[in-house]
């Protein structure tokens, strides 16, 4: 995924959108264009997210893994050492349901965190990531992954024409 990325800062979403259109017209595939912004931009405002969002499945998987763990914790421990209390049955269903539910929810939360972080690409401390702190002033950083100097030059031109500030090539990952 690593390679040359052309970046440009844009003042306001309109200019960024214009630049986005120009990049697409180069042509540059949708998945090679992205933005960095301090606020979430609506999809298709500048660029479109082509990657499907898959991690909610892991939430479900986490739920079931948690449910199994909860079941083992409740039911399993009753059966490992059957000790009668209060003259009641060894297998007691409602407490098992409660414990299973709680651990299942914990599993779902854990699954969401782990898979969500992974899919968002967080915790990549060793890789050089494209970033520009100036987005915190309200600017939008438009990034285009290009292959070859020829394409880079055309992308830079397109960005400059659309009103990009500090348009430059960068080495790094998105």
């Amino acid at each position: 995924m690593s390679g040359m990325v052309v970046v440009g800062l844009f003042e306001g979403i309109e200019k960024a959108a214009k630049a986005g259109n120009a990049l697409r017209a180069l042509p540059l595939a949708e998945d090679r264009i992205t933005t960095l912004s301090s606020v979430p931009l609506p999809d298709r405002a500048v660029t479109r997210d082509t990657r499907p969002i898959r991690f909610p499945r892991v939430t479900l998987v986490g739920w079931f893994v948690g449910a199994l763990a909860g079941l083992a914790l409740a039911l399993g421990t009753y059966l490992l050492y059957p000790l009668i209390t209060g003259g009641k049955a060894i297998i007691s269903v409602p407490p098992t349901l409660i414990v299973t539910y709680e651990v299942a929810m914990l599993g779902a939360l854990a699954g969401t965190v782990i898979a969500g972080f992974r899919e968002m690409g967080l915790c990549r401390f060793r890789t050089r990531l494209i970033h520009d702190p100036r987005i915190q002033e309200g600017k939008i950083l438009l990034c285009a992954r290009v292959s070859g100097d020829e394409q880079a030059k055309r992308a830079m031109d397109a960005m400059k024409t659309a009103g990009g500030i500090d348009v430059r090539p960068e080495e790094g990952e998105l």
Binding site: T35, L36, P40, D43, I53, F55, G116, G121, C123, H131
Partner: peptide
């Protein structure tokens, strides 16, 4: 954790916070 605010990050961030 290296959050920068890419379009893809923001989209997933919103889905995840809704799930939470």
């Amino acid at each position: 954790l290296g959050f920068r605010g890419t379009h893809s990050e923001w989209r997933r961030y919103h889905v995840a916070s809704t799930i939470f």
